[in-house]
Simulated scan of single mutants.
Amino acid sequence: MKIKASFDGLKLALSNFEGEIAGAATEAMRETMPLAKQELRDQITSSGLGQRLANTWRGNVYPQSRRSVNPAGYIYSNAPDIVDAFSRGATIRPLAGRRFLAIPTNNVPQTRARGARKQMTPEEVQLAFNQDLFFKRGPNGRVYAFVNAVQSRNRKSFKPSTKGRLAQGRAEKPVLMFVMVPAVRLPKLLDLDAVAAKWTSRFEASFAQRVEAP
């Protein structure tokens, strides 16, 4: 006598069960990942770091077009160095043997680089105003960098002291361009670990709810 057992029904049941688990896990990840990304963005704006930096957060769920029992939510920033600095409270120091960091004031003109506007560097300011910066020492190891310039017609900016502008009666005066500091200690404004822990827990709860649902 031969006994033959068939496991076709069991295989089908297991296959259906795995499909339900994959669906629940993937749906839970697709629900929670965008919310976690939004909280990271909100954390940046509420810290006063601006919407532009907040928008550097991006996110994807993998796999993108099918379900999986092990879905992954990947959230990343297009400005990782800045985000890392404010999440650690890093100290920024000069590189390449320089003694100071140059912190621009509102008097520093803007220039366009790669389609974006940014304030000029000390070297660019010297070229734009056709003169070297001159310095005055201040408290706490700071040094203040100036150029001689005249005010623009709309009185909103400063221009090089050309003969034509001086002939118009515009007075030349020292204009503060940079505050030179030995180092900058950034405050710890971001808590990425707390966001990750919170939304890992939310994913687990969302997954459990879907599995337990009739």
Rank of each mutant, 00 (worst) to 15 (best):
G97H: 06
Q110K: 07
R117W: 15
V61A: 08
Q38L: 11
P94N: 11
N55R: 12
P63G: 12
S46I: 09
F7G: 11
T111S: 07
A25H: 04
K11L: 07
A128P: 14
M120W: 08
M33V: 09
F86I: 00
G73F: 03
S68N: 10
F7K: 11
A96K: 14
E31A: 09
S65H: 13
M33T: 07
P109E: 01
T105R: 00
K37M: 14
I75V: 00
A25W: 03
G89P: 03
A24M: 01
K11W: 05
Q126G: 15
G59Q: 03
A22M: 02
Y74G: 04
F129A: 06
E18P: 08
R99H: 11
A54P: 13
F17G: 15
A128N: 15
D84R: 02
S15F: 14
L40H: 08
P122H: 13
Y76M: 05
A36V: 12
E123Y: 10
L53G: 11
S6M: 13
T111Y: 03
Q51H: 13
G59R: 02
G48D: 06
A28R: 03
E31C: 06
E18Y: 15
G73E: 02
P109Y: 01
L49F: 06
A96S: 15
Q110F: 11
L101M: 07
N130V: 10
A102G: 04
E18L: 08
A25F: 02
S6F: 14
G97E: 06
F17K: 11
V61L: 07
A128W: 15
N130S: 12
T45G: 09
V125P: 14
T32F: 12
G73P: 01
K11M: 08
Q43R: 07
Q110P: 10
L53K: 07
L101F: 08
F17I: 13
K2H: 07
P34C: 11
N106H: 00
I44T: 02
Q119H: 09
L35I: 15
I44F: 04
P94R: 14
I44R: 02
E27G: 03
L35E: 12
L95G: 13
S6H: 10
A90Q: 06
G89F: 05
V61P: 06
A25V: 04
M33D: 10
T105W: 00
R41P: 04
L127M: 14
Y62V: 10
F129R: 09
T26P: 00
N106V: 03
T121H: 02
L95P: 13
I92S: 13
S47G: 14
Q119Y: 09
V83C: 00
N106Y: 02
V125D: 15
V125Y: 12
S15T: 13
N60Q: 02
L10A: 06
L35H: 15
R66I: 15
P80Q: 01
A54I: 11
L10T: 05
A128H: 14
P63M: 11
T111R: 03
A79S: 05
A54D: 15
G50Q: 03
A113D: 11
N70W: 08
P34I: 08
R52A: 14
P71D: 04
S87E: 02
L14W: 15
L12Y: 09
A90W: 04
M29A: 01
G9C: 12
R67F: 11
D81N: 01
S6D: 11
R66D: 15
G19N: 06
E18S: 14
P34V: 10
G50E: 03
Y62F: 12
Q119F: 13
A5L: 07
A72S: 01
